[in-house]
Amino acid sequence: MTWLAVLLGALGCYLCKLAGGLLPESVLASPRVQRVTGALPVVLLAALVATQTVGDGRALVLDPRVAGVGAGLVAALLRAPFLLVVAVAAGTAAVVRLLV
C-alpha cells in the first residue's frame, strides 16, 4: 500500500516533468494552464499546513502541534533556514507536550 503510493506518485511526477518537453507548447503556454500551475503549489501547501496542524482523522483538534507550527511560522517569517524552522517547530511541540 505504501509502496503503491510511492511508485504511483513517482510515475505521476515523472510524467509531469516529461510532459513539458512532449506536449505542444500551446497547451502549456496557455495563460489558464500557467495560472493553475502557478497557484496549485500555494493552494496545496496551504491545505497541507491546515490539515496537518489541526486535523486528526476526521476531527479537528487543538494540541501541541499548533504551538509548534506557530513557532515554526515565526522562525520562517524571520527567514530562518529550513532546517531551523522544522527544528523549532518540533522542539516547541515537544516541550509544550511535556508541560501540558
Binding site: 505521476g12 510524467l15 516533468k17 500557467q34 500551475t37 502557478g38 496549485l40 496545496l44
Partner: peptide, 20 residues
Amino acid sequence: ALGAAATATLLGTRNGLYGL
C-alpha cells in the same frame, strides 16, 4: 495510496512548465 499519489502529482505539475 491513490490520494497521496494524486496530491504529489498535482504538486509536481509545475515541473512540466520548467520542462517546456
